[in-house]
Every structure is written in C-alpha cells, then in structure tokens.
Amino acid sequence: MGVPEPESGLGLLYLKDALGRMQGVRELGEGAMRQLRLEHWHAALAEGENSVAVLVQHLSGNMHSRWGTFLEADGESGSRNRDAEFEDAGLTPDELWQHWNAGWEVFLGVLARLRPADLTRTLTIRGEVHTVLEAIQRQIAHYSGHVYQIVFLARHWLGADWETLSIARGQSGEFNRRMQAERA
C-alpha cells in the first residue's frame, strides 16, 4: 500500500471535477426537458427507439441500481428490471421529473460523499470488478450520452422554438469578447 493521498491531492481534484461536471450534465438535461411540450415526452423518432420518457426511466433506474447500495452490493441490484426501463410506462411529465430528480440525488449524493481514498476501492457491476474511479468514469460516459440524446430529441421536436443551451450560432465572437472583458 502506498501513502494515503492528502485531501488536497489529485483524487480530491478529480472528485470535485466529476461532481461539478455531472451537475452540469444534469442541468443540461433539465434545460432541454423544461422546453418540452406534453406531446414530446413520449415521442420517439422511430418504432423501438427511445423517447425522452424512456431515457428518464432508464437513467433513474440505472442510478438507483448502481449507486443506491454503492460499495455494499453488486452494482446491478436484484430488484432492478432494466428491460422495463425501455418500455414507456406512460408516466406524466411530473412523474418523470420525480424519477429524474430521485435518480440524480442518489448519484450526486454518493459522488459528494466520496473521498480520494475511495477511488482505488473495488466494487462489482454485473459481476465485473471495477475500481470506484472506473465506475465513476463508466457512469459519466453513460449518463452524458443519454442526456445528449435527450437534448437531441428536445431540439428535434422543438425545431425553431428551441432555445439554445449553449452559445448561439454566430455568437462565438461576442461570447469570447464578453468572457475576456469579465476576466479583465
């Protein structure tokens, strides 16, 4: 065993960054979902593809399964029915928001409690051994991918009514000037 990493080391920097980035991913998804009309939540681009509702169901189910008993049990809880997450349960937007918030609270709550020494601990997900760092990286990629699917669908359904969640087209120069002025 090596020397324990101080609370100000690379591990702490990583955990703070992971937490901040995933809070940003959550906010991005929320910005997209706030723009949806009722008919958009359950609309899919084609038969068998995911709607925003299905993506929310899946994200919430995964977050509860992976992080609800983090480091205590296999990262695939026995009570989880993953296949059902991909079947539209017909939930209302309010119910979907409840699932969204509950899942993110579980995930972000665990991230906020982790310490650098935890990063090298091991856990299993579906019987596969991961370090905590690997598990976090796995979920960062997974959750970000699905949130970007939500953004894509919202933007597609809203068309010209879409309100950008980043720098608007043609506004990069102005944005950069404003950022430089704020730093000066």
Score class of each variant (00 low, 15 high):
residue 45 L to Q: 10
residue 46 A to Q: 10
residue 46 A to Y: 11
residue 48 G to I: 04
residue 50 N to E: 03
residue 54 V to G: 03
residue 54 V to Q: 03
residue 54 V to T: 09
residue 55 L to E: 02
residue 56 V to E: 04
residue 56 V to P: 02
residue 57 Q to K: 06
residue 59 L to N: 00
residue 59 L to R: 05
residue 60 S to Y: 01
residue 60 S to D: 09
residue 61 G to D: 02
residue 63 M to A: 12
residue 64 H to F: 13
residue 66 R to D: 04
residue 66 R to P: 02
residue 66 R to W: 07
residue 67 W to A: 07
residue 68 G to F: 08
residue 68 G to I: 08
residue 70 F to W: 12
residue 70 F to C: 06
residue 71 L to R: 10
residue 72 E to I: 11
residue 74 D to R: 02
residue 74 D to V: 04
residue 75 G to Y: 07
residue 76 E to N: 15
residue 77 S to C: 13
residue 77 S to W: 11
residue 78 G to N: 09
residue 79 S to R: 14
residue 79 S to G: 14
residue 79 S to C: 13
residue 80 R to F: 08
residue 80 R to P: 06
residue 80 R to I: 10
residue 82 R to M: 03
residue 82 R to I: 03
residue 82 R to F: 01
residue 83 D to Q: 11
residue 83 D to P: 04
residue 85 E to I: 01
residue 86 F to H: 01
residue 86 F to I: 02
residue 87 E to R: 11
residue 87 E to V: 14
residue 87 E to H: 12
residue 87 E to P: 05
residue 88 D to T: 02
residue 88 D to N: 01
residue 89 A to C: 07
residue 89 A to D: 12
residue 89 A to K: 10
residue 89 A to S: 07
residue 91 L to V: 07
residue 92 T to S: 14
residue 92 T to P: 10
residue 93 P to H: 12
residue 93 P to R: 05
residue 93 P to C: 05
residue 94 D to L: 15
residue 95 E to N: 13
residue 95 E to F: 08
residue 96 L to Q: 09
residue 97 W to G: 02
residue 98 Q to P: 13
residue 98 Q to C: 13
residue 100 W to L: 09
residue 100 W to Y: 11
residue 100 W to N: 00
residue 100 W to G: 01
residue 102 A to G: 07
residue 103 G to Y: 03
residue 103 G to H: 03
residue 105 E to P: 05
residue 105 E to M: 12
residue 106 V to Y: 03
residue 106 V to W: 03
residue 106 V to H: 00
residue 107 F to G: 00
residue 107 F to D: 00
residue 108 L to P: 06
residue 108 L to K: 09
residue 109 G to S: 06
residue 110 V to S: 00
residue 112 A to W: 10
residue 112 A to D: 14
residue 114 L to H: 09
residue 114 L to D: 06
residue 115 R to F: 11
residue 116 P to Y: 11
residue 117 A to N: 14
residue 117 A to G: 15
